[in-house]
Design a protein around this nucleic acid. Structure first.
Length: 787
DNA sequence: GAGCACTGC
């Protein structure tokens, strides 16, 4: 095909079908500045492009021809230093602010390697980049790509017929990162956030289909898009950032993109990681070349304990006090494993430090102790940014701040001014046991990579020190190199459903970077088959197709999709949303009784799902505006944050219901079937999570199939001896608990899942009950029940 | 009669 021609006139070869934006552009004075980077498609190319379908892009596809322009570092710098901003929708001169920021960008380590970058980028479809903290890779690399992609940043008619730029995507594991980096990069490029440069996260899409060419997004969001566009046709380059974190979404995207680049020769892929396992990434991506960019942090001196510490909590507290007495000014960051431990440590550190400052004011300054974990209200989280206290006397010993934090300070939050890190070497990690189908949290030794990340937190503003509360020998011999990726530690029911929706036919031979245990995949397939999302051949059923569209666990999705048949989709929407957000009940240590009394006001005797429904209804009835909502929640020991989130989730789920033409209906509240219908819909999704009362004790249950002995969680509002309950969660702590439980009838269970409850697969009393139900159902004259 | 590490859709 003919190469597209560059044109110096802003309008010459444009097609007659014009977007409004273009019309505006040609009438503004700025538009008279010729944009030498515009590339136009001929009428023939446009026609061919419009005719193209969503299939793979062949070498002779008109869009493929737009890619080969290879930019050198010198060319990119010339544009960067030029007078006209070629990225702006309306070409315009750069602002003074742009030039100021540009001077700063040039100091970033990654800037010095621009030529190396283009050399590798131009010659390879896939490349791996290592950039340590402070290298500038997240902000600069996508911009570098934008220069080389410049012809495409201008609107071209895509395969779907819409006039839009082909995009560069840069994925982030976290929402805040996607948002804040996009904002920063829009400033650096002197364009508008949400127009040329934007971001997409759940609940918020700050992009413009017609003008956005660089998009930061969460990895989960790109995965969602891939479910509807298997070739990611809207993108010319995909950058997977923070790949070393190995989130489930990143891992799936890597496997998927490894296939997509084979189908689309015009798609580029950059995998960016902070240090280490680069070799593993290179190998996985067919020996892709590597670019290494140095970081810009200060040295951190590391200390180990000479002997193993029997009690890391005690040792951590002792170390903080030691630093406070003996080290120069500078704040301390301590890593612990959970809320309770952190609150405990904060109290003890505070007590000891106050004691010390009182008895020895010449040696010790004041100490401010601040806890940090995710469930802390945002206002209290902000305290980590407070300044350290001033010395008590003008020339007295300096004040100091201690932040006692979970892993949240390892990646998600950075605190400037930290000079000392105390690392006991543990964190809580999710583990999945496919044998008993239970995910639980375990306090586990961290990895070397994690320990290095923690230590690095001490060197952000000046040289620092890291105190590891384990021996150097343990460091060398006991810590694993990398933490296990999430895909090896999770229940994969959701992931397996997503993979099918992504068009992956064989889930076992899929090219995972780290293949999960076959048993984990079998468990997922089994669940999805029982839910009727997969047929017996392992193919997605029409129901499964719809389920995959909902951002929910398969059981929740099933319950929601069948709810119109039980005339309760409005109520199930609420319950699904409430189950998708953190616990709405707040129970402060000092006010447990008041909190329990408040919860009792919403309690429903038949179960916790119905209690959640009550809470939401009360919230909607009593909370007309934000201020009253906050007060009302506070008075009722409810989390306003969680309820707002639930509201948000509910709207999203409702939109999806509407899109799939699923009716939004309710049974009349006066009808005695109002609650029964809801319970039936829940049972229809969760019949694989049922427990049966064991013996005469009203609090003793056994799970069906696994026969695990479990107790209802003490927070449950179910107030009578139910024979069968469905449970939302199995929690393994001091004992086996089932949490969020609701009574169900055995006849529903047998009706909805006769194969699962086949008496031949059951034992004891449940076997007898199911056999009776089966006999009744098999009797030809029996009236047939729904479903 | 209890405990939600952290993300994400």
């Amino acid at each position: 095909m003919a190469a597209p021609q560059a044109s110096t006139s802003a309008d010459a070869a444009r097609p007659s079908k014009r977007s409004k934006m273009d019309g505006t552009a040609s009438s503004t004075p700025e538009a008279s500045i010729a944009n030498p980077y515009l590339v136009h498609m001929s009428e023939e190319e446009l026609a061919a492009s419009a005719a193209a379908t969503n299939g793979s892009i062949a070498d002779d596809h008109p869009l493929a021809g737009l890619i080969p322009r290879k930019v050198t570092g010198a060319e990119a710098r010339k544009v960067m230093e030029g007078d006209v901003n070629p990225f702006s929708v309306v070409p315009k001169p750069y602002s003074n602010e742009y030039k100021k920021i540009l001077a700063k960008r040039k100091e970033l380590p990654v800037y010095a390697q621009m030529d190396d970058f283009y050399q590798l980028f131009n010659q390879n479809q896939i490349m791996v980049m290592i950039g340590e903290t402070g290298s500038g890779k997240t902000t600069q690399i996508p911009q570098f790509v934008a220069y080389s992609d410049l012809p495409n940043t201008q609107k071209t008619k895509g395969p779907d017929g819409v006039l839009a730029p082909r995009m560069i995507a840069c994925t982030q594991p976290r929402r805040v990162a996607a948002m804040s980096v996009a904002k920063r990069v829009a400033e650096e490029m002197d364009v508008s956030l949400g127009k040329e440069v934007g971001y997409t996260i759940r609940f918020e899409d700050a992009t413009d289909r017609r003008t956005t060419f660089l998009k930061y997004m969460t990895d989960g969001m790109l995965l969602r898009e891939a479910m509807h566009d298997h070739n990611l046709e809207r993108y010319s380059c995909i950058i997977l950032d923070e790949a070393h974190e190995r989130t489930l979404a990143t891992d799936i995207l890597m496997g998927l993109l490894k296939e997509v680049v084979q189908r689309r020769s015009d798609l580029k892929l950059i995998v960016m990681s902070a240090t280490l396992d680069a070799l593993k990434f290179q190998k996985y991506f067919n020996d892709a070349p590597l670019l290494k960019v140095p970081g810009r942090t200060f040295p951190v001196e590391t200390f180990y304990t000479p002997e193993p510490e029997p009690d890391y909590l005690e040792a951590a507290i002792r170390t903080v006090i030691m630093i406070h007495q003996a080290e120069d000014a500078g704040d301390i960051l301590v890593f612990l494993t959970g809320e309770e431990e952190i609150e405990d440590a904060c109290r003890k550190i505070k007590a000891e430090a106050d004691d010390l400052a009182a008895t020895n004011p010449d040696l010790c300054g004041p100490l401010k102790v601040v806890p940090l974990y995710s469930s802390l209200p945002p206002a209290q989280q902000q305290r980590i940014f407070d300044a350290a206290p001033a010395p008590l006397t003008p020339n007295g010993p300096p004040g100091r701040k201690v932040v006692v934090s979970t892993n949240i300070a390892e990646t998600s939050l950075t605190i400037d001014g930290i000079v000392y890190v105390v690392d006991p070497g543990f964190s809580k990690q999710k583990v999945y046991n496919p044998r008993i189908r239970v995910e639980s949290l375990l306090v586990t030794p961290i990895s070397k990579a994690s320990a290095q990340q923690r230590a690095g937190r001490a060197g952000r503003t000046r040289p620092g020190k890291c105190f590891r509360l384990y021996t150097e020998k343990d460091w060398a011999n006991e810590l694993i190199e990398q933490s296990y990726p999430e895909i090896l530690r999770s229940n994969l029911a959701n992931t397996v459903l997503e993979l099918k929706k992504l068009g992956i036919s064989n889930l076992v031979t899929f090219d995972y970077m780290d293949p999960p245990a076959p048993e984990t995949i079998m468990r997922a397939l089994e669940l999805l088959n029982y839910l009727a999302a997969f047929d017996d051949e392992g193919n997605l059923t029409p129901l499964g197709e719809i389920m995959a569209d909902f951002p929910l666990d398969p059981q929740l999705a099933k319950m929601l999709i069948v709810s119109p048949e039980f005339k309760c989709s409005n109520e199930i929407l609420t319950i699904a949303a409430m189950l998708s957000v953190p616990n709405v009940f707040v129970r402060p240590n000092s006010q447990k009784q008041q909190a329990d009394a408040a919860q009792a006001e919403f309690a429903h005797p038949d179960g916790d799902h119905l209690t959640l429904l009550n809470v939401y209804h009360a919230y909607k009835t009593n909370c007309r505006d934000n201020k009253t909502a906050a007060d009302w929640c506070w008075q009722n020991y409810l989390s306003h944050r969680a309820l707002m989130q639930a509201d948000n989730v509910r709207s999203q789920l409702q939109r999806l219901m509407e899109r799939h033409n699923l009716d939004l209906v309710s049974t009349s509240f006066e009808d005695k079937r109002y609650y029964t219908n809801i319970q039936m819909a829940i049972a229809c999704g969760f019949f694989m999570q049922v427990a049966h009362r064991a013996g005469g004790n009203k609090k003793a249950f056994q799970t069906i199939k696994d026969n695990q002995v479990v107790s209802p969680h003490p927070s449950s509002t179910l107030d009578h001896a139910a024979e069968f309950v469905i449970y939302h969660e199995f929690v393994l702590t001091t004992r086996n608990f089932i949490r969020t439980i609701t009574e169900v009838k055995p006849e529903w269970l047998y009706d909805f899942a006769p194969a699962y409850f086949d008496p031949n697969n059951m034992d004891g009393e449940v076997k007898r009950i199911m056999a009776t139900l089966k006999a009744r159902k098999d009797k030809p004259a029996a009236p047939s029940k729904r479903r």
